[in-house]
Design a protein around this nucleic acid. Sequence first.
RNA 1: CGGAAUGUGGCCCAGUGGCUAGGGCACCUGCUUUGGGAGCAGGGUAUCGUGGGUUCGAGUCUCACCAUUCCGACCA
Length: 570
Amino acid sequence: MRLSKYFLKTYKEAPKEAEVVSHILMIRAGMIQKLAAGIYNYLPLAQKSIAKIEKIIREELDKRGCQECLMPAVQPGELWQESGRWGYYGPELLRFKDRKNAEYCLGPTHEEVVTDMVRRNLKSYRQLPWNIYQIQTKFRDEVRPRFGLMRGREFVMKDAYSFDVDVDSAIKSYYLMYDAYTAIFKRCGLKFKAVDASTGAIGGELSHEFQVLADSGEDTILSCSKCDYAANVEKAVSDRVLPAADRSCVEEMKEVSTPGQKTIEEISAFLKKPAENFIKTLIFLVDDQPVAVLVPGEQDANEAKIQGALHANSVWPADEETVKRVTGAEVGFAGPVNLKEKIKIVADRQIYSRVNLVCGANKTDCHLTGIDPERDFKADLIADVTFARTGEKCPHCDGVLEQFKGIEVGQVFHLGTKYSTPMKCNFLDKNGKESTAVMGCYGIGVTRTLAAFIEQNHDDKGIIWSPAVAPFEAVVIPLQGNNEKVSATAEKFYSDLREIGVDVAIDDRDERAGFKMNDADLIGFPVQIQVGARSVENGQVEVKVRRTGEKVLIDIDKTVDYVRDLLKTL
RNA sequence: CGGAAUGUGGCCCAGUGGCUAGGGCACCUGCUUUGGGAGCAGGGUAUCGUGGGUUCGAGUCUCACCAUUCCGACCA
């Protein structure tokens, strides 16, 4: 490609709204332009990179027997009603009506559509397993789009769905995809970790996230210092030693007046007891039913674990009205004893290692002291519903947990029959009996992967692409455009390199040398062939490696071979 | 959804209630230049976010709305 005719404009300054480095550099390098909040034009330079990532994805998936299709972005609401998600997916699902007043949505994901598509074609166990995928634009009306392509509302996603005859076979499909993802991100040149994850709104039982390690990441990962255990902080468990409570001096339960003391901090200061002596009682709406969750005063409730422990679809903090209704008191005085309404109580197991605790009395301005969790109330469920913390012991070995920030670029889920049961995605098994398909679903944020790559590969001059995902593998830069020998040499490289299949650009713009070199570094061409008057006189040109900044003088007649071999090593 | 800030050529920013709204970058023309974002000369480019209000007069004060961004809450 000739840069003089390319749809490209670079900038010295980025708009002030751009905060993270991938966003700033993609705008400065002329890769993206914002059209609306969280919605971007992908300019030719970005689209070239996206196409390369997609090609890697297609190769690795096709190799493993996955089949590409393309489903509509506009989906009928009735499919979502059938799966049950129309009701609780929330405002992130962009809904609208057509001219006949029928309900539709823009697909944020395609479980409903693919399950419907498969059930129309699936008859016999002999047809399975199937793995269907597509690469397509998704829309999620995010509350707060930010960071450019990292959290857009419209984005490109590869989503795949597996259908198997039973759980064993589905787990095999799951790990096949896990391997595919590992291969894909490795080929893209990313430093990443596969971590245990919770399943969230997609639902299901077994899940891993593929996290690109970067300080700007929005996710927190805990991983073992010794073994390969790694998990999203929502999911991570630690091997906590839970000693039996010291019952040598058990107090009586007593009501104390605590006017206006609502938060653990306030009451802790007021009663002069550390936060560890408190039971934090939080009211959640779990599938719209109020549930009291008890955690140690110094820790936070983990909504993902609550969702898992109760096999729930949704977990939300309860609104003030609900809290007042079920506790009979102002917010801040909830406790497990004498709840006004009989609701389910979920207790974190750590509180059973403690006695003489303090909790709300379900009476405004009153708390109870001397609480013995075994004596004074009965929990409906005892579970791990808090967060594992840095420094705690790994659940698999004697290492300790360390914390990292990550960007989630992919996730794999084992779904079971969460969608196939309500949507009746059935087939006849080998005994002629009707059986339900066991599903998995697998996503890769393609545009986010691009942003994540830049987060991980840049310096103060610009982007540092690897050839595998670079818009162009190399650029030829005639340093003096008005020098005939220089431009003739540059043009020869340009055509010779294309001849042997190198994806190369030539910067034939009427610009000064410094301008072109700065642009080359900003855009991040992995290999830059600088053709200058001085070296050409000596029968040589300079070949620069973007990542190292290293420049080597090469004889003109050896340059094409040198570049071809060099690209293989980058 | 709560808190805060910002909206002035394509981008970054000036602009005291008062004349024809400025500068830098970018863009166009010409000359000169050409090894790390050149110089000179000339030129084009703004419903000052939108709508009301105050005023003899509003980019500037005021109200509402819209948009964007940040922090929080939330979220594959």
